[in-house]
Amino acid sequence: MQDIRKPMGINWIGLGTIVRREVSRMMRVPIQAFIAPWISALLFIFIFGFVVGGRIATIGGVRYLEFVLPGILMMNVVNAAFLQSSSAIYFSRFIKFVEEILVSPLSYWEMIAGSLSVVVLRASITGVGILVMGLFFGAVHIQSFPLFLFWVVSVSAVFGLLGIIVGLWSKSFEQLNMPVVFFLTPLSMVGGVFNTVEMLPTWLRWLAWSNPFFYFINGIRGAMIGVDETPPGLGEGLTLLMLAILSVTVWRMYAKGYGLRE
């Protein structure tokens, strides 16, 4: 007989069910989830890497195409991660099926971990697709696979958490899209995808150093082609710090029921 007072351990099946449910939702919209970012990445690779890059000798000692590929990959990882978690949480609030999770014996960490697992999965599939495209252009190098994995997983988790915050905060689809339009796209574009900090005028370099996207793009570029413009460990440290702050923030929002409970 079930001892009702026995404290529950980790609800692995519940956590796995969140993943199953979200994967099912994601697979209903494969064009939006994967095809669109892959086409966009292909165009970036072709135009900036191949057409424009063909007229640039080398940058940081490598072909321009090899230089921009990590940045293009990271931009799409960021977008995939953010869109996955923000749309999932907002849609579930909008339709109210988030209540299924609220009435279940799931801890807040399990709810968050379930969502983030799907975020990392979607971002990784997006990234792998872009790497495959890069292979056709002979532009894929991975100098440190553990570091490459660290950047893909940690950055997707950071933007997955940010997506959850925005998904909980938004009261309309308009609000849900605001961060993409005003922050994600502009900051990723000027975050060093297409240029090194050295190529910027001296007076403008502070802009790159103060842009978190710069560290993510620079980090994955270091893992892929060894071109790293920041002191060792700085980008990794900042990313882990962001991850910790955002994790605590999201946990507190869940515990308080912000955007979830009446």
Binding site: W12, I13, G14, T17, R20, R21, S24, I101, S104, L106
Partner: peptide, 15 residues
């Protein structure tokens, strides 16, 4: 989602 999925997911949440 289908009716079966909805019920199955709820069972999953309950472990």
């Amino acid at each position: 989602a289908t009716g079966r999925q909805i019920v199955d997911w709820m069972g999953g949440y309950f472990g």
